[in-house]
């Protein structure tokens, strides 16, 4: 059930990146896809344990810490990509006053 929902979230993002023409929404789609991947790792990694991976005296049987550590990196990288893409989109908007990617290509190549 959870995986199916995450898959749908991923598809929403992918659809936006491929088919929506507005650059900002493409970048939204990228963020959503990334959230879906992070959710996938965390949801599956939480299956094997029942407490947070912080060891104290009474804690045992923790969830898998590896996906969590990897996803920390993935989240930060995704935000960096978003920021750079936004900078590029803003510059393009400043010059051509549009966010539509096909229109931008036409204006640039003419």
């Amino acid at each position: 059930m959870n995986e199916l929902l995450i898959y749908l979230i991923f598809l929403t993002g992918l659809f936006a990146v491929v088919f929506i023409k507005n650059i900002i929404k493409k970048i939204f789609g990228l963020g959503i896809m990334n959230s879906a991947v992070v959710l996938l790792f965390i949801v599956r990694g939480a299956e094997i344990g029942e407490s947070a991976p912080i060891l104290e005296n009474t804690v045992y049987n923790v969830v898998d810490p590896i996906p969590q550590a990897l996803m920390l990196t993935a989240i930060v990288i995704s935000v960096c990509i978003t920021a750079l893409a936004l900078g590029l989109a803003y510059n393009l908007y400043l010059t051509y006053r549009t966010f539509d990617i096909d229109e931008l290509r036409d204006k640039i190549e003419s």
Binding site: G31, S35, I42, A46, Q68, M71, I75
Partner: peptide, 23 residues
């Protein structure tokens, strides 16, 4: 809820905070 407090903090600070500010 899924016992990943570190990722939760990062997501809240970075995903909901910094990237929203950029947008």
């Amino acid at each position: 809820y899924l016992n990943a407090p570190d990722v939760a903090i990062t997501e809240a600070a970075v995903g909901a905070g910094l990237s929203t500010i950029a947008y």
